[in-house]
Structure formats: C-alpha cells, structure tokens
Amino acid sequence: MGLMFRKRKKYGPIILNFTENGFSSWSVKIGRWSWNSRAKAHRVDLPGPLSWKQDKSRA
C-alpha cells in the first residue's frame, strides 16, 4: 500500500476535496450537519466520537 495524496480547500461552509487525480468531490458543512456530493449522504456530528449518517441512495 502506497502513500495517498489528499487536499482540502475550505471556502466558508463549502469544502473542495482533491486527490492525486485532481478534483474529487465537494461538501457543505453548517454547524454539526454536513452533506457530501460523492456519497450523497447527510451526516450529523454527535457528542464524543459518534456521528449519524443517512445515505440518500438507500433512503
């Protein structure tokens, strides 16, 4: 297994994700809620190390 390149650029609540192949996905994060364009999933950060995720493709 080799090294993986990942880069994140934040512009307010919008986050752009890049890999070694270029642009990967974008996310929106407002408070504890976030949504990712690649996974098409909503996520809510819960207290401690927990989080809740709703996958849109299975809902």
Rank of each mutant, 00 (worst) to 15 (best):
G48N: 04
R38G: 11
P47F: 06
L50E: 11
V28D: 05
D55Q: 13
P13V: 15
G12T: 04
L46F: 00
I30R: 04
A41K: 01
F18V: 06
S27M: 06
D55R: 11
W26C: 02
M1A: 12
S51H: 10
K40I: 06
W52I: 14
L46K: 02
V44C: 00
W33A: 15
Q54M: 15
P49D: 05
S24M: 09
K9V: 14
R43K: 12
W35S: 07
S37I: 09
G31I: 05
N36K: 01
N36L: 01
G31E: 01
N36I: 07
A39D: 06
F18H: 02
P49Q: 07
I15F: 01
A39F: 00
L46G: 00
E20I: 11
R58W: 02
K53Y: 06
V28G: 03
W26L: 08
T19R: 15
S27V: 01
K56Q: 15
G12M: 04
P13Q: 05
A59W: 00
S27D: 03
G48F: 02
R6P: 11
K56M: 14
K10V: 15
S37V: 11
K56R: 05
N21Q: 13
K10F: 08
W26I: 10
A59P: 02
P47Y: 03
I14E: 03
L3W: 09
R43P: 01
G22T: 03
N36Q: 03
R32Y: 11
T19H: 15
P49T: 05
L50D: 13
Q54D: 06
D55L: 08
T19E: 14
G48E: 02
K29G: 12
M1C: 12
R6Q: 06
G48V: 05
M1G: 14
G2V: 02
G12I: 09
N21T: 09
V28W: 02
I30H: 01
L3M: 10
R58C: 07
D55H: 04
L46Y: 03
L50C: 13
L3E: 12
S57M: 10
P13G: 00
V44Q: 01
W52F: 12
S27R: 07
G2T: 04
E20T: 10
R6M: 08
W35Y: 11
S34C: 02
A39L: 14
Q54F: 09
K10Y: 05
G22Y: 07
F18Y: 10
P47M: 05
S25I: 08
H42M: 08
D55V: 13
K9F: 08
E20A: 13
E20M: 07
D55I: 12
Q54H: 12
P47C: 03
L16I: 10
K29I: 13
G2H: 11
N17H: 15
S57L: 10
S24N: 13
R6Y: 07
Q54I: 15
A39T: 13
I14N: 00
R32S: 14
